[in-house]
């Protein structure tokens, strides 16, 4: 009698196990089908867009979107570090009203920070840690244009390549800090 009850229980457990397995397989198959449909939909959209939009434009858009997302997270995180006081700032919060009414050159002189990329030496201070996110967002266009250079090479399009290269030179020159000067 007892043996019979154990066997029945084992059978019941096996049935439940089979049912769970079956449901899991079905769910997995459905998930895979949905993912395939999503992929197909994205590919269809991309093909439709390619009718009006060039491949390099789509790549630029993808790169820009990813960069903006990273930049925003950076900006929010570093600002939290700053205002929460977890990391000490270069200029104390109580002194800010005096500093923000100074001109940029007077501010740099008073805070003891140099021009150009000298701010990078201060990134261990939380007010300057924010500059990493800011510089990342400002510099995003340089990365996007670098990607465009590959397309110019692929298409052997010298006019397009020249415009991309010239813009890169301008942006890198601006970013270099060579233009910075104390008034």
């Amino acid at each position: 009698m007892k043996q019979h009850s154990v066997k029945a229980r084992m059978k019941a457990v096996a049935r439940i196990g089979d049912a769970v397995l079956r449901v899991s397989r079905q769910a997995w198959t459905r998930l895979k089908a949905r993912a395939r449909l999503r992929r197909q939909h994205r590919a269809k959209l991309r093909n439709q867009r390619l009718k009006y939009v060039s491949a390099e434009q789509l790549v630029y858009a993808d790169l820009l979107e990813a960069g903006v997302a990273v930049g925003r997270i950076f900006l929010a995180f570093t600002f939290f570090l700053y205002v929460s006081g977890i990391v000490a700032p270069k200029v104390a919060f109580s002194d800010l009203p005096a500093y923000w009414s100074l001109s940029a050159s007077d501010y740099l002189q008073s805070a003891g920070v140099g021009i150009g990329w000298n701010w990078f030496a201060q990134v261990d201070n939380s007010d300057y840690t924010n500059f990493i996110g800011i510089a990342f967002l400002i510099g995003l266009t340089i990365f996007c244009y670098l990607r465009l250079l590959q397309f110019a090479w692929k298409y052997r399009d010298s006019v397009f390549g020249a415009v991309v290269a010239l813009e890169l030179i301008v942006l890198v020159f601006a970013a270099s800090g060579l233009l910075a000067s104390s008034h």
Binding site: T78, F79, Y82, F93, L96, Y99, W100, A104, S105, Y107, L108, V113, I115, G116, W117, W119, D127, Y128, N130, F131, I134, A135, I138, A175, G177, L179, A180
Partner: peptide, 9 residues
Amino acid sequence: LNQGAMLAI
């Protein structure tokens, strides 16, 4: 940015 004309706050 390089001229110091940005304040995070």
